[in-house]
Design a protein around this nucleic acid. Structure first.
Lengths: 115, 115
DNA sequence: TTAATATATTAATATCTATTCATATGTTCA
DNA sequence: TGAACATATGAATAGATATTAATATATTAA
């Protein structure tokens, strides 16, 4: 491998910009964890469901299918990554999308893939 | 588990909307694959680098670090998921972000996580 | 306080994924 | 044509992740 790709000048400049704008490892990993959280079908279903409104676990199970245990695991992952938030209401725990960035990202993706 | 969460009416309505707006399994999996593609540090680094401009493989390696082989594997994953595109130019292959949706999603995420 | 209900956690396993090393393919130029 | 270079691929393995079943915790109401 050498640099003689016939675009040395532009590419070297791009490399420099890329290096100086590159997020830190810490931030890269943080972003990745967020994207990974929404990268599994059962979790994405939960997000899409919650984009329709706040729900308790029982109703999330009803809307998304799957077992209570599995949904609960996925809710945990989503919450740990600040994708969703929860509040207790008596015996129930109500979940909702934690902030608008999430919905925007999902909407762009749906638009992009025509979903 | 039963439905008696004290929010039966609203939740049932939300469940109905969620079910009727829920993307098909096929589309859910397609979205998930896209998100998964951008969910690994080395791949996200490549995307961030290419957001600065088109580059050949050698320069991507220079910008992102890692081995040529690994970068090449990751480029493949990104390309298979239409995150990036490539064109051959002589001995080199030049990669770039495949469309603006990708950059928008990454930008929102950076803004969200303050990266 | 006990029973009933809703949700969360733990541990086990099966599956998936990233990374590495070795090698193959494709391109240019002598 | 063959040598040199740029990129891609295949196979192996180590590590991560999803799913399940069983059980624990938390809340309410009797």
């Amino acid at each position: 491998m050498n640099t003689d790709c016939g675009h040395i000048q532009e590419h070297e400049e791009t490399v420099e910009r890329a290096k100086s704008n590159m997020a830190s490892n810490f931030k890269i990993e943080r972003m990745c964890r967020s994207f990974k959280a929404i990268s599994e079908p059962s979790r994405l279903r939960i997000i899409l469901a919650l984009m329709e409104g706040e729900m308790c676990v029982y109703h999330i199970v009803e809307a998304c299918g799957g077992t209570q245990s599995n949904i609960s695991h996925q809710l945990r992952v989503l919450k740990d990554n600040n994708i969703i938030k929860s509040r207790r209401d008596g015996q129930n725990v109500l979940y909702s999308i934690s902030d608008e960035h999430v919905s925007r990202i999902i909407d762009i993706s749906r638009e992009h893939l025509d979903c």
